[in-house]
Design a protein around this nucleic acid. Structure first.
Lengths: 267, 267
DNA sequence: CGGGACGTTGACGGTCGTCAAAATTAGTGG
DNA sequence: CCACTAATTTTGACGACCGTCAACGTCCCG
């Protein structure tokens, strides 16, 4: 009933281990040498500015100091840790979550390949949330000092950094709208549409997805309890809008989901 | 029972109309000439980086192209409008709100003197929310191109811009926590504490404030209906935590408010 | 002084949270 | 590879919190 995920049209960089173009592109970490280059990364169009000259592209490779693998369940950074890097996700799936003093916590976002995390750390030079890998992941480590340095010289990089931060602000505005004014069905419908749209931009199916997070994590993100998430899924299934088998979801009626998010007057 | 607001220790720039230091600092707008200068603005410490050299300070004055007055109830910018400027609030009070297609809207924040608005417009070169003045206001108009230009040259300005954007991201994380996991009392308590803390940083009282927004706007921000906001205020009054007379609020027991936001185990 | 915007309060109902139990799956170690 | 335990998910019953609807009161401004 559920096929495996379609292959993304932008595959993980197949030349990641190929010989570098210069010593500066080869960095030694933990006794293993990893070739690092944005210039031939297929995620570039997602996480780097377009329209760079060859020489600019060459210099942008320098923002990535190294790569880092994160095992499922472990953290990329934690609340309180010193901020030094932004991270571009190469593969895998993350959640970010904040915690209040009395232990409540709230998932503030789910991030996938091509997206950048760590922006929260800039204000106070320390992170204010946890970033947890929901599946084995690999990220590009980008020292923020170098990003600032280079973006002083490469205008399109500067603009790009600003856009990434602004995009995050706008995204959070949308989440606030969701949390502040939507009911459970609307929240879950919006969540599914958003996920599938982002996956589609990465070459995956428009109608099928595998949830990398638990019902509880979805609930935390949407301001609902896990039971409500589960019940709402069940209602969607009853209504023939989706098929759900554990974490595999197939969207049968995208229009219906859109109508739930944005109730139309009349029919 | 309620005195008028205390005077802020950082007063509106008393030299705003004083003779400028050069022609470039004098800009003509709408047949009136307004002296524009961050260097002698008393809000500087709130909205500009610290530790600038005199020459840098002089150049930062150039970021502000002009000033603009906004009447209570009118908008500084609207969803869909082309993005060209960021705005630093000199006086007055704003709300920003986003709207969904079907007409629901959500207040995403309240902004006061020294804070910067317009960051949402950077991603798509057009604004994604409305900024509405809740009282007569004046803002510094800062063309974003010039900000980017100057921040390529002045490192501390670049860092400052990044911090402002990151701060907004962190703020919104906090709002998501509030909307996602707090009950009405907790939300309102957190809201009051946040407002009074920001006002205090501007030289106002720690315990007294005048709400510039309606119950409905508070409710929209907090994900509650106006009746719930009103009822929750009444409960706080019954419990002797605050005094409320219309939009004048006096906090009688700050600790109680903190305990509501952050329930302690035990006593 | 009068109309409109804003705020308060009450009664009632719906949505979602809480508690509980059972089913299914995933992960672990033998 | 299988058994066993933990984790996750589903479903039900019930109740609390907050939304809805309504009426009334208050303040502000023309």
């Amino acid at each position: 009933m559920f096929q495996p995920d379609e292959k993304p049209s932008v595959n993980p960089d197949p030349h990641a281990i190929a010989p570098g173009r210069g010593a500066s592109k080869v960095v030694s970490i933990n006794a293993q040498t990893i070739k690092v280059a944005c210039s031939n990364c297929n995620l570039r169009e997602l996480c780097m500015p377009l329209g760079l000259s060859a020489s600019e592209l060459d210099r942008i490779d320098d923002v990535v100091a190294s790569r880092r693998k994160i095992k499922r369940g472990s953290t990329l950074f934690r609340n309180g840790e010193k901020f030094t890097n932004l991270y571009a996700i190469r593969t895998g799936f993350f959640k970010t979550c904040v915690a209040s003093e009395d232990g409540r916590d709230q998932v503030t976002g789910f991030q996938m390949a091509g997206e950048v995390i760590g922006l929260d750390g800039i204000v106070n030079d320390s992170h204010t949330c946890d970033a947890v890998a929901l599946e084995d992941a690999e990220v590009c480590v980008m020292p923020f000092d170098r990003i600032e340095e280079l973006s002083r010289e490469i205008i399109s990089l500067q603009r790009h950094v600003h856009k990434i931060m602004s995009r995050e602000i706008v995204r959070e505005n949308g989440v606030m709208l969701l949390l502040g004014s939507m009911r459970a069905e609307e929240r879950l419908a919006a969540f599914l549409l958003n996920l599938v749209q982002r996956l589609h931009a990465r070459g995956f199916s428009q109608s099928e997805l595998v949830l990398r997070m638990t019902r509880e994590e979805i609930g935390s993100y949407l301001g609902l309890k896990l039971e409500t998430v589960s019940r709402t899924f069940s209602r969607f299934v009853e209504d023939g809008i989706v098929e759900v088998k554990q974490r595999h979801v197939r969207i049968l009626n995208t229009e219906a989901l859109r109508d739930i998010v944005n109730p139309r007057i009349g029919s």
